[in-house]
Computed example of a mutant assay.
Amino acid sequence: MQGTTPARAIRRLCVFCGSASGFRPEYAAAARELGMLLAQQQIGIVYGGGSVGLMGELANAALAAGGEVIGVIPEVLMRREVAHTTVTELRVVKTLFERKAIMAELSDGFLVLPGGLGTLDELSEFATWTQLGLHQKPLVLINTCGFFDDLLQFLKHAVAEGFIPEMHAAIVQVVDSPAAALDLILYGALPEIVPRWAVNEQRH
Rank of each mutant, 00 (worst) to 15 (best):
Q2L: 08
T4L: 09
T5K: 10
P6L: 09
P6K: 10
A7S: 15
A7H: 05
A7F: 03
A9G: 12
S19M: 09
G22A: 07
G22Q: 05
Y27R: 00
A30R: 01
R32C: 15
L34D: 10
L34Q: 04
M36R: 15
L37H: 05
L38E: 00
A39W: 14
A39K: 04
Q42A: 09
I43N: 03
G44F: 01
G44D: 06
V46Y: 05
G48S: 11
G48E: 04
G49T: 11
G49K: 04
G50S: 15
G50M: 06
V52E: 09
G53R: 02
L54D: 02
G56T: 13
E57W: 05
N60R: 14
A61S: 15
A61I: 09
A62Y: 14
A65S: 14
E68G: 15
V69F: 13
V69A: 15
V72G: 13
R79P: 03
V82M: 15
T86P: 01
T86W: 12
V87P: 00
L90P: 01
R91S: 15
T95Y: 12
L96E: 07
L96M: 15
E98Y: 06
E98K: 12
R99Y: 12
I102H: 10
A104C: 14
A104R: 13
A104Q: 14
L106Q: 11
L106E: 11
L106Y: 11
S107N: 10
D108F: 09
G109Q: 01
G109W: 03
V112T: 10
V112N: 10
P114G: 00
G115Q: 07
G116I: 06
G116V: 04
G118P: 08
T119D: 04
L120T: 13
A127I: 08
T128F: 06
T128C: 11
T130I: 13
T130S: 08
L134R: 15
H135R: 13
H135L: 14
Q136Y: 03
L141S: 02
L141W: 06
T144R: 00
T144G: 00
C145K: 03
C145G: 05
F148M: 00
L151N: 05
L152F: 02
F154D: 01
L155D: 09
L155K: 02
K156M: 08
H157W: 12
A158H: 09
A160W: 03
P165Y: 04
P165S: 05
M167Y: 03
H168L: 07
H168I: 00
I171S: 08
V172T: 00
Q173V: 02
Q173K: 04
V174N: 00
V175Q: 01
S177P: 01
S177E: 05
S177R: 01
P178V: 10
A179S: 13
A180S: 12
D183C: 10
D183L: 06
I185S: 13
G188P: 09
G188Q: 01
A189F: 08
L190M: 08
P191N: 04
I193H: 02
I193V: 09
V194W: 02
R196H: 12
R196D: 10
R196K: 14
A198F: 03
A198R: 06
E201A: 11
E201M: 07
E201K: 05
Q202E: 12
Q202L: 11
H204F: 02
